[in-house]
Amino acid sequence: MEDLIKKLKEEILEVLNLEDMDIEDIETEAPLFNDGLGLDSIDALELIVLMEKEYGIKIDDPKKGKDIFYSVKTMADFITKNQ
């Protein structure tokens, strides 16, 4: 789980072009969107692509992204459950 979380953070930084940040800047359980990192609906779509490309998990309904991408922790849980 620890490894997955670290890997996810690295991937998030890369696909969302968060160049100025380190993985330490992303708190595992903090919200990624809105008040958290300030991500938006386009980022959610980018994360959907990431999930399928890197983890083979297809998310058909973008509305589901809200819960799955709430935090790095929820993403990791979702991956573990669905892989």
Binding site: L45, E46, V49, K53
Partner: peptide, 9 residues
């Protein structure tokens, strides 16, 4: 397949 939306947008 699996295209990033950002450049299109």
């Amino acid at each position: 397949n699996l295209l990033n939306p950002t450049p299109f947008i």
